[in-house]
């Protein structure tokens, strides 16, 4: 019964079926399954499969966005039932698309994967002024700041943001990603990490902070 419900959650996240996902989330609560377990073993497992399929070219962004919708719908049902012991102090990640760029799909996918992996994500949105990244990183004591850009014309502000973060919040790590970026460019920009896509972002973030979200 329990396995069937968790598998139902996983499968409905992968297929992006919002109604079924909500149905299984409610079933999980009715069956006395711990909400944290339902999120981690049902929803997050589903997103992990989605991530693998994206990496293999078996799923693309339209399907992933539907999976995200399904996962968030289930989380809405499950989150109020999380027990206090599971609401610890997660690692904080500040995410945003840099100034002059409104392409936030990649950043939203990173956010989704990171939340599914247990990070607390502070989403600054898109077209984010440089100083806002820095101010929020300092104010929140962020573990990681992730900068995203789709265009060659917008990525150019990244070194400045990274430099300022290093100056004002030396413990905060930085990572970059998005279409025109590369490991070499990330290094040249002074970033601590680079992720090719959303599926890599969680792995990179975890490796930067020593494996614990």
């Amino acid at each position: 019964m329990k396995d069937e419900i968790l598998r139902g959650l996983t499968d409905s996240v992968v297929s992006g079926d919002v109604e079924k996902c909500v149905e299984y989330a409610k079933k999980a609560l009715e069956a006395g399954i711990d909400a944290y377990e339902a999120i981690m073993e049902g929803c997050a497992r589903g997103m992990s499969i989605v991530s693998e399929k994206y990496e293999k070219g078996e799923m693309y962004v339209p399907e992933i966005l539907c999976s995200a919708e399904a996962m968030y719908a289930a989380m809405e049902v499950l989150r109020p039932h999380l027990k206090v012991e599971h609401v610890g102090t997660p690692r904080k990640v500040v995410l945003g698309v840099v100034r002059g760029d409104i392409h936030d799909i990649g950043k939203n996918l990173v956010k989704l994967m990171m939340e599914a992996a247990g990070f607390q994500v502070i989403d600054l949105g898109r077209d984010v002024p440089n100083e806002r990244f820095v101010d929020i990183a300092v104010r929140e004591g962020a573990d990681i700041v992730g900068l995203s850009a789709l265009m060659t014309t917008s990525m150019v502000v990244m070194p400045e943001v990274i430099k300022e973060i290093k100056k004002r919040s030396p413990k905060t790590l930085t990572m970059v990603g998005g279409g025109p970026l590369s490991p070499e460019l990330a290094k040249a920009y002074g970033a601590d990490g680079y992720a090719k896509d959303a599926s890599q972002a969680v792995r990179v973030a975890k490796s930067l902070i020593g494996g614990v979200a």
Binding site: R99, G100, D101, I102, P129, N130, M151, S154, V156
Partner: peptide
């Protein structure tokens, strides 16, 4: 420009006059 369409169909774009901006944005 890459953000073409939004303004032309009745939306709004900003022109890249601020530091760090390099192309029109929606």
């Amino acid at each position: 420009y890459a953000s073409f369409g939004a303004w032309e169909f009745g939306g709004e774009v900003g022109m890249p006059y601020e530091p760090g901006q390099s192309a029109p944005y929606i």
